[in-house]
């Protein structure tokens, strides 16, 4: 059963990596805005370039579909 040491080391190494990623993500502001990402992915980035959307336009687009 001593193999559990290896599994613990491997798992905790990866967990530490994830912890590092988590700390980085919080500190670099990944979660500062939780409102726009779900909407952002719904827009295509094909040209021509669209003007900046107002929230009214965003709402209209969502409600129309």
């Amino acid at each position: 059963m001593s193999v559990i040491i290896l599994l613990l080391i491997a798992s905790i190494t990866v967990a530490s990596l994830f912890l590092g990623f988590y700390i980085w993500s919080v500190k670099s502001g990944q979660y500062d805005d939780e409102q726009s990402p779900p909407f952002r992915i719904l827009f295509e980035d094909s040209p021509p370039v669209k003007p900046n959307h107002t929230s009214a336009e965003i709402n209209k687009k969502i409600n129309a579909s």
Binding site: P38, F39, I62
Partner: peptide, 8 residues
């Protein structure tokens, strides 16, 4: 979300 055109 893309297929439903709805945010998460």
């Amino acid at each position: 979300p893309k297929a439903a055109n709805r945010p998460v």
